[in-house]
Design a protein around this nucleic acid. Sequence first.
DNA 1: AAACAAATCCGAAACGTTTCGGATGAAGAA
DNA 2: TTCTTCATCCGAAACGTTTCGGATTTGTTT
Lengths: 337, 337
Amino acid sequence: MTTIKHIASQAGVSVTTVSRALNGYSDVNAETRKKIEQVAKELNYSPNSLARSLVKNQSETLGLLVSGFNKESVKDGFTVEVMSGINSYIAETQYDLVLFNTDSSKQRKKTYTQLCKERRVDGVILQGIKTDDPYLEEVMESDIPCVFIDIPVSSKHVGYVSTDNVEGARNAVLHLLELGHRNIGMINGHKQAFVSKERLEGYKQALLEYGISFKDQLVKDGSFGEKEAYRETMSLLKEQPDVTSVFCASDLMAIGAISAAKQLNYCVPEDLSVVGYDDIPLSSYISPSLTTISQDKFALGYNAAEMLVKMLKYQQPPEQCILKTELKIRSSTSATS
Amino acid sequence: MTTIKHIASQAGVSVTTVSRALNGYSDVNAETRKKIEQVAKELNYSPNSLARSLVKNQSETLGLLVSGFNKESVKDGFTVEVMSGINSYIAETQYDLVLFNTDSSKQRKKTYTQLCKERRVDGVILQGIKTDDPYLEEVMESDIPCVFIDIPVSSKHVGYVSTDNVEGARNAVLHLLELGHRNIGMINGHKQAFVSKERLEGYKQALLEYGISFKDQLVKDGSFGEKEAYRETMSLLKEQPDVTSVFCASDLMAIGAISAAKQLNYCVPEDLSVVGYDDIPLSSYISPSLTTISQDKFALGYNAAEMLVKMLKYQQPPEQCILKTELKIRSSTSATS
DNA sequence: AAACAAATCCGAAACGTTTCGGATGAAGAA
DNA sequence: TTCTTCATCCGAAACGTTTCGGATTTGTTT
């Protein structure tokens, strides 16, 4: 492995000069620089980023801490599309991305700060962690620049990007209300997700606008899983036969809900309208195609990466970025008869 | 940021002793070790992996070089599911994963070796690169341990994991032949993909077994894209009206093919049988559900990671790992009338 | 001729570890 | 007593960079 020293002796200059030449400093003669560059190419030199990072005290790497990058999440498509957005932005910068795993039962159980401090990442993006995750606290305590996805917390060194979940859920339910539905169930995610809290709030708001009182027994938690949503929808429909429509906090759960409905011989949308949340690729392909709240998952990741990089490169303060959502009306909803 | 020196002075010993204590060497007194560990905890110490890597000349990081981790590939689900498998295995090891981007129009156009040498990765997994990619050559020339996914090349320091694409394609086409089809079209990927070459070979083999001569005009390239496959299927069906079935080299293309068929008022599977390849999540949800060759994408990634780690940790030689595929018969194929 | 400025170069320290080769002292063996 | 052995520790070099502060040479100004 050729180093800066080899180049120095080969070119007959000092290591200092080689370093400065290769890094484009001005106090090196044009010819010397030429010579050095040529030698560097001949010796097939590439700088050791470890050594560089060590002395400069910054690694040019960003941490990506996603919880739940597994088989199920791949099917969902949400997590990976966000990752794809992050990746896309980062690809155009000088940074590299290192993947930290959290949800594993890994032996070396490290804390967030340990993870980051060891690898000396310049900043971190966190995705999919729960509200009761100890990492959350650690992030706030440490002073590593970071940005959250879908978790609205911020401080001097942490920002976030999310979508307007209250508004999104509200629009979903308003859509059902406008179609004449009055008994609207909800399959939510789980208690440890910020988005679930917000989407429930949106659900309540919409009902309120139509003067309908909120009934606790109409909402169930499906923990964002297809199977679980199937199960919960089953019991919802059995317990509450008056329900004519259901709002699901994710498309995957909506798919589970539709399966359940079909199992109970409901026709969708004739007997039961279903609206989802996310607009994953699957949603437009299934039948009936899914009415849903579309959020730009790619942009979620892209913006997060952009914010983080700007914080690092230009010392910009963290922001709170809220993206718009859009109601996509397809075939899983219809007016009440 | 607290270093080993701080601990040393605080504990009243030398840095050597701190290092050896923290790394579990035997020549340090039990009490001293206790003391050192305690001080380390008090000062909230975590080792600087950069410094460590520099002197040990190994970074405990693996490179993941995927070409085509973007919006389209997310929809496909293939790329990300492989990544998920890689991630799963790596999560249980001491390694971290750094993501290299290639397909971007990034300014810093680095060569493969530059990328790896700079970051000093211990090994690399390459996925989705084309047969004419200059990286391929570089990998063989360099001596960094690496494993390819779906590219059957190997050497002293490179192995691969793939599926039996000839066999898979053959089974797909045999399935159609058994259903009575004799005019079988094929929508392949592109010329720069090993798997395309192999799947075409499987297609030919199956035809041969039934004594059917291969006709060049029955196979088109859809470059693994839904839109492209749609277009190619359109022209195929128009040019070759005798065709009663088509084998697509990916599920996404099969979906495009089905759209085209529907557009031309073909019923699937009554007028046209379609079989895909991959078995992505979408395939079982669309209607008609897709008959396809299922490959274990997760295992592809998992095995690749496992192989690489074993090469690194136990100096094992690289292997050639071929996974089995499985024909999944669903509703997009039927017997000829 | 002396003084100054600009251009170009370099030595050495620093970043935070690991590790080689010994040093020290105490205990046991001769 | 002297020699060995063992347990425990440490100094210093090394990894490959960057960077601070200065040195040298050349040309320009007074």
